[in-house]
Design a protein around this nucleic acid. Structure first.
Length: 421
DNA sequence: TCTGGGGTCCTAGGACCC
DNA sequence: TCTGGGGTCCTAGGACCC
């Protein structure tokens, strides 16, 4: 049986989450910002019509925001993450094989559905998600993931599709590819798009019809796979269980310059704490830890970016052990003449905790430490993040991410539940 | 004043091995 | 007058994704 993929994509996901819980925002220009309220990372349809570009820094469009009373929201990842899970749960009823691709996208296998029923099933799915979560989604169906993404794009843009388009056995496939710019094809980034356009390959259709050998020379096997996917030969399988991670990163930009070692230490301590929490949630231990620091790349002061990687003799997921390493690295990297703008920690050489070898020394101490971590995670899960924490993360936290316009975390915090008059 | 965060895969080239 | 062949592993860099 030939594979059939459906691609499900939430429309303007972050903005739609905001609108779902605040009906006054429906139909209005709304934007959601990145950390520190820096850049625009989601826009409502009305905001797109005002020509607010994806990724533009907020300070460059202050005028526009004022003039059109654009509603500005900080990122509320607690809300978006929870809403995402609810959307993904709806999909289980439509296919035994679901790949959660990102916070707002999924692929599902629909090869069990007869081709003439695909559009109906798509509509059913769309209505279900809308009813159960309040969120609008679009559905694209095709013989490969890449084509399904393209079908979805048309489903979003063309009103007559009513949000669902199947390109399976479709006479319109050439036209559908013709109308997609090559830069909008999944897997074509700015560098490849530039190269392709210089060769007069400007649409998805032209890319599909390009000689494979030419593509292989510049884009390698990834490019060849892409072209075949456009031809309708599935090369990218559904990935139902995500492969284990190779690294865990926690990094942030600071809202203002950080100059004191004490501040930098606090920040790195918090990032390390978060990274250790992530490791424990995923049952992984780090065999190496990298700390990196950087000055403001847009600033005029002295530029400095550096990192230190330390191997950890006994792979660990315990906050105190990782903190010791991270803080030591931070002191090595610190420079008194620099204004730091960003820092982060990266855990690598990850190993599942249940496969860790017994420690030659201090195994009992390690067992106790793991017990402590379990208790700390339990307390923090029940009474809120950082109820129990290391003193190293500080109390003033002048460097903390700015979130001036965040909406309530309606679905994950009891004290922020939606109230209706 | 103000410019995000967290990932992956592939390839080329060097070191090293027999 | 001529300098093998075929592997593996590691790393850095480039490209991409949301």
């Amino acid at each position: 049986m030939p594979p059939i993929f459906a691609h499900i994509d939430c429309n303007n996901f972050y903005v739609s989450c905001e609108q779902t819980f605040d009906a006054r925002l429906v139909g209005r220009p709304v934007i959601v910002l990145s950390n520190n309220d820096g850049c625009v990372i989601a826009r409502s349809e009305a905001a797109k019509l005002l020509d607010v570009r994806m990724g533009v820094p907020l300070f460059q469009i202050e005028d526009l925001v004022q003039r059109h009373a654009i509603v500005v929201r900080s990122s509320n990842y607690a809300l978006y993450g929870d809403m995402s899970q609810r959307v993904m749960q709806c999909l289980d009823d439509f296919s035994p094989h679901v790949e959660v691709y990102s916070i707002d996208e999924a692929f599902i296998d629909l090869s069990h559905v007869p081709p003439n029923r695909l559009t109906d099933v798509g509509q059913l799915l769309r209505a279900r998600v809308r009813k159960w979560t309040g969120l609008p989604v679009s559905v694209g169906v095709a013989a490969s993931k890449t084509l399904a993404k393209i079908a979805n794009r048309h489903a979003k843009q063309s009103p007559k599709t009513n949000g669902v388009l199947s390109l399976v056995d479709s006479p319109h496939i050439d036209l559908a590819l013709e109308r997609i710019a090559v830069a909008d094809v999944w897997g074509i980034g700015p560098a490849y798009a530039h190269w392709l356009r210089r060769r007069d390959i400007t649409t998805a259709r032209a890319l599909r019809d390009t000689d494979e050998r030419e593509i292989r020379r510049r884009m390698g096997v990834v490019g060849v796979r892409l072209v075949r996917e456009l031809q309708g030969t599935s090369c990218l399988a559904l990935e139902e269980c995500p492969p284990p991670r190779h690294s865990v990163t926690v990094s942030r930009s600071f809202p203002g310059p950080v100059v004191l070692l004490s501040e930098l230490r606090e920040a790195v301590a918090l990032f390390t704490t978060r990274a250790a929490e992530k490791l424990r949630r995923r049952n992984l231990a780090a065999g190496a830890l990298t700390v990196f620091v950087a000055t403001d790349r847009f600033g005029r002061g002295p530029q400095y970016r550096a990192s230190t990687t330390v191997e950890i003799a006994h792979p660990s997921d315990a906050t105190p052990e990782l903190l010791r390493v991270a803080l030591h690295s931070t002191e090595e990297l610190y420079r008194v003449d620099c204004e730091f703008k960003k820092a982060g920690v990266v855990c690598t050489a990850l190993a599942p905790t249940d496969t860790l070898p017994v420690r030659l020394w201090n195994q009992e101490k390690w067992d106790r430490l793991r017990g402590v971590m379990e208790a700390v995670d339990g307390v923090n899960a029940r009474f809120g993040p950082d109820t129990v924490r290391s003193a190293a993360v500080g109390y003033q936290q002048t460097w903390r991410t700015r979130v001036a316009h965040r909406s309530p975390r309606y679905t994950t915090h009891w004290d922020e539940l939606l109230c209706v008059d």
